[in-house]
Amino acid sequence: MSTLTTDTRKSYMGLLARARPERLEQLLPDLPAHDWLRRPEIGTTMVRGRIGATGAPFNLGEMTVTRCALKLSDGTVGHAYVQGRDQGHATRAAIVDALMQSEGVEQVDATILAPLRAEEAEKRTSRAEKAAATKVEFFTMVRGED
């Protein structure tokens, strides 16, 4: 077992959940042998908001989520909860979770997580730049003598 911190694990699990299923499949085409602890299951999560953004919680509506849990042949367990209904997406996310806890963390990070991180950063930058172009720059016109 590697010494994985909860923060690291949270961070890559979020990254995997947000990844496009097709992209994750390209980066991890072949799945290592695994046994199911929980087969991929499609369900929902009730998304909550807060009144006035910071007040008491209320139920906003649900989103689709797919989850699964599996065990690699070396006994490492991987979990996944990912947005949407793609069972392959959840499976791959759980496999990466397991791989990150066993041998070869650097390789998994370099070949799967690093590209996902870079592409996500690029997407966010692109959106931020488009938003910045629509930011209003007020100027005041001075009228009259004083």
């Binding site: 299951e41 499609i42 369900g43 929902t44 999560t45 009730m46 998304v47 909550r48 908001g49 807060r50 953004a53 910071t54 919680p57 139920n59 906003l60 649900e62 689709t64 989520v65 989850r67 909860y81 966010r124 959106r127 931020a128 488009k130 938003a131 629509t134």
Partner: peptide, 23 residues
């Protein structure tokens, strides 16, 4: 369709303060 799905739980309330803003 929603009624056919199991519910896994509820989210932590979303933090709109940390929204990635487009507008």
């Amino acid at each position: 369709y929603r009624t056919t799905l199991p519910r896994f739980g509820a989210s932590v309330p979303v933090e709109t303060d940390r929204m990635d803003i487009i507008r």
